[in-house]
């Protein structure tokens, strides 16, 4: 994924002096039939997708999660993704869909270009951290090792 994203950026930057936006590779699970199938078979987990977002162009994209996932757990997932972006000075994002009435093993069907995807299980545990509230300070911009 790192090789792919970097090669796309290099080729594009040589082709145009107006490259902008996100410019990399998206990994929206429901919108990509192969990624959706890999997620369904268990070959691609939420944790691995999160790891991939550290080198792809955006983040946890079009991921269906159980409808009963608490808001605090969703917030934890989003905060983790934000940390990857903030600490690495890149854009990251989340497009999470808590599907009402459905859980792991079910499928969410959005139709058209939005596709369909399995509901991925989400592990909780970070709710207490989220409930602290407030703001995590900006990272130091020196001592970059």
């Amino acid at each position: 994924m790192a090789l792919l994203t970097d090669a796309v950026k290099k080729g594009g930057a040589f082709a145009s002096s107006s490259v902008g936006g996100l410019s990399g590779a998206f990994i929206p699970v429901s919108e990509d039939a192969v990624l959706a199938k890999a997620a369904e078979s268990g070959a691609l987990s939420l944790e691995k997708l999160e790891a991939m977002t550290s080198v792809c162009s955006v983040g946890l994209d079009m991921i269906a999660v159980p409808g009963e996932t608490p808001a605090e757990t969703l917030a934890g997932l989003i905060a983790d993704e934000c940390a990857i972006g903030v600490m690495n000075h890149k854009t990251t994002a989340c497009r999470l869909i808590p599907v009402p009435g459905k859980g792991p093993g079910d499928r969410a069907v959005f139709g058209g270009l939005f596709g369909e995807a399995p509901i991925l299980p989400v592990r909780g545990g970070g709710e207490a951290f989220v409930r602290f509230g407030g703001r995590i300070p900006a990272p130091i911009h020196a001592l970059r090792n």
């Binding site: 792919l4 796309v8 950026k9 080729g11 594009g12 145009s16 107006s18 490259v19 902008g20 936006g21 996100l22 410019s23 990399g24 590779a25 998206f26 929206p28 429901s30 919108e31 990509d32 039939a33 990624l35 959706a36 162009s57 955006v58 270009l113 596709g115 369909e116």
Partner: peptide, 11 residues
């Protein structure tokens, strides 16, 4: 403005 050259998949 800009060209965004992201690889954006479809189903």
């Amino acid at each position: 403005g800009i060209v965004d050259l992201s690889l954006a998949p479809t189903p």
